[in-house]
Design a protein around this nucleic acid. Structure first.
Lengths: 367, 367
DNA sequence: CTGTTAGCGCGTTCAG
DNA sequence: CTGAACGCGCTAACAG
């Protein structure tokens, strides 16, 4: 692979002149510039970004460390990050931590060594080990989706508390009085905030304590499935569920389906997180939708703005609103007396079976 | 940020010794090694990967250039790539081309400059501009998902032709005789191959030419929606549809729904590409499923194997099998006389178990 | 087992 | 407007 030197020799100029032409810095006469460009074309010369980065101490690269890009929320968010970054000439490295603090720390170490200019981080839990490390090395950070306590960094997230509140309010307005929450991990801020929003809405109604039921689990399908078992074991049973993320909802739906409990006739379900538009031909779930792409885009903007600025910028926190979308998974509760008969009544699918519901079942195959 | 030199000075040894300790290369006495490690810890030293890469001429980085990571098939594939890469100490850069040859070329240029060790590429179309460029610069390539004509590179993909054949055979076996294909772009190999599989299955039945209808569009939801308009305008109408990817299917389903046409009572639909397990609580679509994660994993393995080898390796082509999963979107065609009356008749729910069949065996040839 | 020398390819600094 | 020298931080190739 040819170098600056090769180009310089072929063009009969010094390496510095070639450098100037490439970076469009300083002044060069049109004549020599043409000669240099000709040599560059002739050799198919590609500047070595590594050398450049080593010298200039900037890699024009940022990293996006998240829990799992397989989650459609993060996929969309990642797309927002990439689109914003590339328009400014930045490349993005994606890293999946699978909610593990250890993996996260490992990645952060690698990223520091690779001298990325900044890191967009969805903290695995409330752990601050990697934030500490990043701080020590003076790397700018934007914390995404989850709250970072006490660290002076940029933050951007959806208002989980308010979103949860509106979702639960919707259920209350339909007449539900016993509502259970299928929550994520207790130490993940989004989960805690959504539970807080739930409590605020419930407390407003001055309902008896037993009407509130919070079950903590994981942000995944299997956990949603398990949590339903606990819901079904409780008495009196709730008439509505609030799933704090999409995967939990899918697991829950599968479990309800297996138990012969119909949605929303027997039990309503409201969910935090929508699926991207166009992925379902007949959206079924009532949800609170987050502006995933926008979160990603703005997170990148926060970072790039900071990197472009030569003066220090005070840490900023951006909280974006969510949107309640009422669909068919929520309805008024069934009459009290029918509440105890959960027999799968001879399937009276008042819904044309041809109408596919939004979603899921046993894992078919997916290598 | 501290450097090798700082560590060397603090430990009272030469930089080379520090280098050896870090890389575990050559021999170092336990005593000095301990002293060096102490200095490293004390300074919180992080090796500069850029300098290392510049010197060693390897970045331990590969790139995955694909059309759109927002597509669940590619998301899962990407995860497979990352998991495989990281276990060998490689980082991955993701790039979305949005099916644009121009964007692809732009990215390839950037990646060459950044001196990635290799590129995993889902070609935007049959275009070979970027492949040519990569070839000229001696960068190893693994072409994923789509065929690369005439280029001596590693390739890995699903057997689209066989998968499409099995899907169409399934429709034929149900009794359908007029089957339309909602295809992707004509110049994308997966689309062409799926259409070819369709033709093979149809031709075997010696059906009249008018029973075959192929409509080319784009691999997205909007296109699926539009293509249905052409299907509905045709006469006689097909009784079954074959959508060549998931997004097209979603657009088609939405259009059918809007037109009051029920699936599968009025019209069956079979789809290439499943949704990841756990994302739907009641899978409805009959599909051919690709081993997305495995394709990604093996693509990375092909690349890393090549990079690890010091001898040249002949180009390899790996074709993985797909799996037919029969669900509820396909059923026998409606009786002929009823074909013109599209009134939503009182739904006759049909319980169809999902069974998974293997369509084609693994084909691994070393070209 | 350890140190010295010489770059990797480029951009910054200062002279011309 | 152009060029020469130097160094970013590290490692290959030799010495010793």
């Amino acid at each position: 692979m040819s170098t600056l030197n090769d180009v310089a020799r072929l063009a009969g100029v010094s390496t510095m002149t070639v450098s100037r032409v490439i970076n469009d810095s300083g002044h060069t006469s049109p004549v020599t510039r043409a000669r240099v460009n000709k040599a560059i074309a002739e050799l198919g010369y590609m500047p070595n970004a590594l050398a450049r980065q080593l010298r200039s101490r900037r890699t024009k690269t940022i990293a996006l460390v998240l829990t799992d890009i397989t989650n459609p929320f993060f996929t969309t968010l990642a797309r927002g990050v990439e689109d914003a970054a590339r328009t400014r000439g930045y490349a993005v490295m994606f890293c999946n931590t699978d909610e593990s603090e250890l993996e996260e720390l490992e990645y952060v170490r690698v990223l520091i060594q690779r001298r990325v200019d900044g890191i967009l981080l969805v903290p695995a839990t409330s752990s601050s080990g990697s934030l500490q490390l990043l701080h020590d090395h003076g790397l700018p950070v934007v914390v995404i989706d989850r709250r970072a306590h006490s660290w002076q960094v940029d933050q951007i997230r959806t208002d989980s508390e308010a979103g949860a509140y509106s979702l639960v309010r919707h259920l209350l307005d339909l007449g539900h009085r016993r509502i259970a929450v299928l929550a994520g991990p207790q130490n993940v801020s989004t989960s805690a905030d959504r539970v807080a929003g739930y409590h605020r809405a419930m407390d407003e109604q001055h309902l008896p304590p037993e009407s509130q039921q919070v079950i903590f689990g994981e942000y995944n399908e299997a956990s949603g499935f398990e949590m339903i078992q606990r819901v079904l074991a409780s008495s009196p049973r709730p008439t509505a569920l609030f799933a704090t993320n999409n995967f939990i909802a899918f697991g829950a739906m599968r479990a309800l389906h297996a138990a012969g409990i119909r949605t929303p006739e027997d039990m309503s379900i409201a969910v935090f997180d929508d699926l991207p538009a166009g992925w379902t031909f007949d959206p079924f779930l009532t949800v609170v939708s987050q502006p995933a792409y926008e979160i990603g885009r703005q997170a990148a903007e926060l970072m790039l703005g900071r990197l472009a600025s030569d003066q220090p910028i005070d840490p900023r926190t951006v909280v974006l609103p969510s949107a309640l979308i009422v669909r068919r998974s929520t309805a008024p509760p069934p009459p009290e007396n029918a509440a105890s008969s959960w027999e799968p009544t001879a399937a009276t699918p008042r819904e044309a079976p041809s109408l596919a519901l939004q979603t899921s079942g046993p894992t078919e195959n997916h290598a």
